[in-house]
């Protein structure tokens, strides 16, 4: 019987991983066949590329003590969005003023739009994310200590 053969295959949990990976691969192929997909031009948090800026392409924007405009989903829910502007460490301040290459590293200048999204407008995402890290760490350290 074909059904009993299928159930025998599924009953071994070593086989579930290849099955799932195969399903993913199949779905990705279907995805390729369904291309092209339309790209919506009206996006939230649009990105401006300014080639002359030394912070480009990771220019998070905003000048100190002013308020940047942020296109968020529900602006009324985040009345204080836009006050956190990007900041440079003394070293990256020096690099930004002398070279054109500071923008090639993502960690050089935190703050700005990224902090607004991560802490403020989409703060819940960032709460869930360290929770996942926390849980994974708890599993790892529990197993490590038990030995």
């Amino acid at each position: 019987m074909i059904i009993s053969r299928i159930s025998a295959f599924i009953s071994d949990f070593e086989n579930l991983m290849p099955l799932f990976a195969g399903a993913c691969a199949l779905l990705f192929i279907i995805g390729i066949l369904m291309l092209p997909l339309p790209y919506e031009e009206k996006q939230l948090y649009p990105k401006q590329i300014n080639r002359s800026s030394t912070l480009d392409p990771y220019d998070r924007g905003g000048s100190p003590f002013t308020r940047a405009t942020i296109i968020s989903q529900y602006p009324q829910n985040s009345p204080t969005a836009g006050y956190v502007t990007t900041y440079l460490t003394p070293l990256s301040w020096f690099l930004a003023n002398t070279t054109q290459h500071l923008g090639t590293t993502i960690v050089a200048h935190p703050g700005g739009i990224l902090d607004e999204i991560l802490y403020n407008t989409r703060g819940l995402d960032t709460v869930v994310e360290p929770t996942i890290l926390f849980i994974a760490f708890a599993i790892g350290s529990y197993l490590f200590r038990r030995g």
Partner: peptide, 17 residues
């Protein structure tokens, strides 16, 4: 968009964790 950058960070962390 800038949103993409903010979505990559959680995605990356989930994978690493």
């Amino acid at each position: 968009t800038d949103l993409a950058e903010a979505l990559i960070l959680p995605g990356l962390v989930v994978g690493i964790a």
